[in-house]
Amino acid sequence: MLKPEWPAPAGVGALMSTRAGGVSAAPFNALNLGDAVGDDPAAVIGNRARVAAVIGGAVPVWLRQVHGTRVLRLTAANAAALVDAPPPEADAAVTGEPGVACVVQVADCLPVLLAAANGRAVGAAHAGWRGLAGGVLENTLAEVCALAQCASADVLAWLGPCIGPQAFEVGEDVLRGFGADPAGGDAAFTWRPRPDGSARWLADLPQLARRRLGLAGLRQIRGGQWCTVQDESKFFSFRRDRVTGRQAAVIWLR
């Protein structure tokens, strides 16, 4: 597992799983944490139990992610109630209480962890391009600030592994989703000509996330250097494999 390298408060725990260390068979080998990808349910339960064992007793809350912008506020009480319930629909979660872990699953989308510098609140967001363009990071940040009673400048962010800027080929709809001009001029999008003349670009998802977080007031943003597509030995990638597992980013208050 990856341990985020960022100056988070001592009371904040965080990790990012990789595909190593689990019990799932190929093509989900090995630590698949996704329960809706075609893997053996018993294997997923076993893999999730391994993650739960690492986070020191905090209850992980798994979401049904829909590439949206809804943020779920977690407490120890509602986390316990969700253990045996269908996963709630949301693409981010925040908490200001110990004993509960915010979790997002990814297999190319960008996982973003947030922690208030005063140690009073944390959050995790699933930021594919649709959620990112729609404001999922801003919504998550606002919830963390409300729980921690702090300003955006007093929140730290960590960007996890995602599809990298050399692999994320997109169409004009993605550029327009971010307000970028297809004619050029945006450093987050690089024109990639195709033999058939179709309009395609390479998009830099971490750069887009840093831009939005910076505009929202964050000053300490780390991570974002891993490409899920290019590092097959370490990460699941839907773009690369189509049928594959999911890794997860997890954050909690100790």
Score class of each variant (00 low, 15 high):
Thr69Leu: 02
Arg73Phe: 04
Leu114Ala: 10
Val106Trp: 00
Leu82Asp: 03
Asp91Cys: 03
Ala125Arg: 00
Leu82Arg: 12
Val103Ser: 02
Cys102Ser: 07
Pro88Gln: 09
Pro111Trp: 00
Pro88Ile: 04
Ala121Glu: 05
Asn78Lys: 13
Ala80Gln: 14
Asp84Cys: 06
Cys109Met: 07
Ala93Trp: 00
Gly99Cys: 11
Pro87Ala: 14
Ala80Tyr: 11
Thr69Asp: 00
Gln105Cys: 13
Val106Leu: 02
Val94Tyr: 00
Gly99Gln: 12
Thr75Ser: 13
Leu110Gln: 05
Ala77Arg: 15
Gly134Ala: 09
Val71Asp: 00
Asn118Ser: 13
Ala115Gln: 08
Leu132Thr: 09
Thr75Asp: 13
Leu72Lys: 01
Ala117Asn: 14
Cys102Trp: 06
Cys102Arg: 01
Val104Gly: 01
Gly134Ile: 04
Glu97Cys: 11
Ala127Asp: 02
Thr95Met: 10
His126Met: 12
Ala124Trp: 01
Gly68His: 05
Gly123Cys: 04
Glu97Phe: 11
Leu113Cys: 04
Val122Gly: 04
Val94Cys: 04
Thr95Cys: 09
Val103Pro: 11
Asp108Thr: 10
Gly131Lys: 01
Gly134Trp: 01
Pro98Ala: 13
Val104Leu: 06
Gln105Trp: 11
Gly123Ala: 02
Leu113Met: 07
Leu74Gln: 03
Ala80Pro: 13
Arg70Gly: 14
Gly123Tyr: 02
Trp129Phe: 09
Leu110Trp: 02
Gln105Ala: 13
Ala133Pro: 02
Arg70Ile: 10
His126Glu: 03
Arg73Lys: 15
Gly119Pro: 11
Ala76His: 15
Cys109Leu: 08
Ala116Phe: 06
Val71Glu: 04
